[in-house]
């Protein structure tokens, strides 16, 4: 697993694509990684189509809605994702086990606030696997938790009118049995 721009993977001879984030950081990633971000792929394909005749192509792709922090994490995730896929090309079960293992480790280092950021970035980049993974992670983080815990987790406040919430809670009273301690 190599960091962006520094120490490119020696075994790979693929093209590099440069991504520029909203905070003006530049990331050089392998084409295989960049192509997992559908937004980048679309941009890249369009550019290529436009430049067929002239033979030049822009390698710098601006990402005005993504900051460097989530992008760096997404690139790491994506590389690992591709690596696990390549290592277990003929065994889907093994691949899923490896992926689950990696994802569990991954989540140990991620704060809830970062998940929000990662979801927004993955959504903008249209990186489906990552978006699914992060949404799944958020869902399991709030599973079996009280309403108060969920609000605190996301920094939300109740915007119900007085009485509305009580009515809802009454209606769904059965769902509050056996929730985990906050």
């Amino acid at each position: 697993m190599s960091n962006q721009s520094e120490s490119p993977n020696p075994t790979s001879s693929s093209n590099k694509i440069t991504l520029k984030t909203s905070d003006n950081e530049v990331f050089e990633v392998e084409e295989a990684v960049a192509m997992k971000f559908c937004t980048v792929k679309q941009y890249f394909d369009d550019e290529n189509n436009n430049n067929v005749t002239s033979g030049t192509s822009t390698t710098l792709i601006p990402l005005p809605n993504v900051e460097s922090h989530p992008l760096a994490i997404l690139i790491t995730y994506c590389k690992k994702h591709l690596e696990i896929k390549a290592n277990n090309a003929d065994n889907k079960k093994e691949m899923e086990i490896d992926m689950e293992h990696y994802e569990r480790e991954f989540l140990k280092n991620v704060m809830p606030q970062e998940l929000t950021e990662l979801i927004l970035a993955a959504n903008y980049l249209n990186f489906k696997e990552a978006l699914d993974f992060f949404c799944r992670a958020v869902a399991s983080a709030i599973q079996n938790k009280s309403v108060e815990y969920v609000r605190k987790f996301f920094g939300l406040e109740s915007d119900f009118k007085p009485g509305e919430e009580e009515k809802l809670r009454e209606e769904f009273a059965w769902s509050f049995e056996g929730v985990d301690e906050d």
């Binding site: 599973q143 309403v147 406040e157 769904f172 769902s175 509050f176």
Partner: peptide, 13 residues
């Protein structure tokens, strides 16, 4: 979300 958590999610906001 599984059903009980889904139901309590309706009361968040």
């Amino acid at each position: 979300l599984p059903v009980p958590s889904f139901a309590s999610a309706t009361c968040v906001s």
